[in-house]
């Protein structure tokens, strides 16, 4: 998805990951709309294996995702980047912002736990630690994503690497509860206004 009018300020958005991508998609698009109105071209690619991408998810790694986002930034001649949540783990080397960046271990733990809860409902006993080891040795399906052992091994230790080019935008600066917490996708106009404003002001500086 993109809003390209050949303007000089060009923002690549790196989406949230996995389940959070669904919950944050609407919000992310709302932020894009506002930035478009503010005179900023916006580009929101799918990560390989996610969204409408036809690439097989089991062949992906976080390093591959970062390369894909770097290629997308080059393709769209992006001047800046805005990564949402776990998107910050695979963002390209550009000046920009990480909104409420998540750690790989935290996202993974939540997906492992989701599978443990689902197994329990079905009358099976699984454990997060056992599933993690399974994932590290032979790959594992989590939240509907078939992730390879390479993916799990890389992702497990992934954190936002600090860079002078990237500013972190914490949820406290946006106000209200983060929409990634929602059980069902939601929207919040005030939060979209706040994030778009933070980016637009930063780009104008």
């Amino acid at each position: 998805m993109c809003a390209d009018q050949g303007r000089t300020r060009r923002l690549l958005l790196v989406p949230a990951l996995f389940d959070e991508a669904n919950r944050m998609r609407r919000f992310t698009v709302e932020v894009m709309r506002r930035l478009d109105v503010a005179g900023i071209d916006c580009f929101l690619p799918d990560l390989p294996g996610c969204g409408e991408s036809v690439a097989p998810i089991e062949a992906q790694t976080p390093a591959g995702w970062r390369m894909a986002m770097t290629a997308a930034a080059r393709h769209f001649a992006a001047s800046h980047v805005l990564a949402i949540r776990g998107g910050a783990l695979v963002m390209p080397e550009l000046p920009g912002w990480a909104y409420a960046p998540a750690k790989g271990a935290g996202l993974l733990r939540q997906m492992l736990r989701g599978r443990v809860v689902a197994a329990k409902e079905a009358g099976r006993e699984e454990s997060t630690e056992g599933l993690l080891q399974l994932g590290l040795t032979g790959g594992i399906e989590l939240a509907g994503y078939r992730l390879s052992s390479d993916f799990i091994a890389q992702f497990h230790n992934l954190e936002l690497h600090s860079s002078e080019m990237i500013s972190t935008i914490d949820q406290a600066m946006i106000g209200g509860p983060g929409l990634w917490l929602r059980a069902e996708p939601g929207e919040d106009a005030a939060q979209a206004d706040a994030l778009a404003a933070a980016v637009a002001v930063g780009l104008a500086a």
Partner: peptide
């Protein structure tokens, strides 16, 4: 009782 609380939402709730 709350249909929106599926297994992934429960996982998110517990983590929070």
């Amino acid at each position: 009782h709350l249909p929106e609380l599926d297994s992934m939402a429960v996982a998110g709730l517990l983590t929070e």
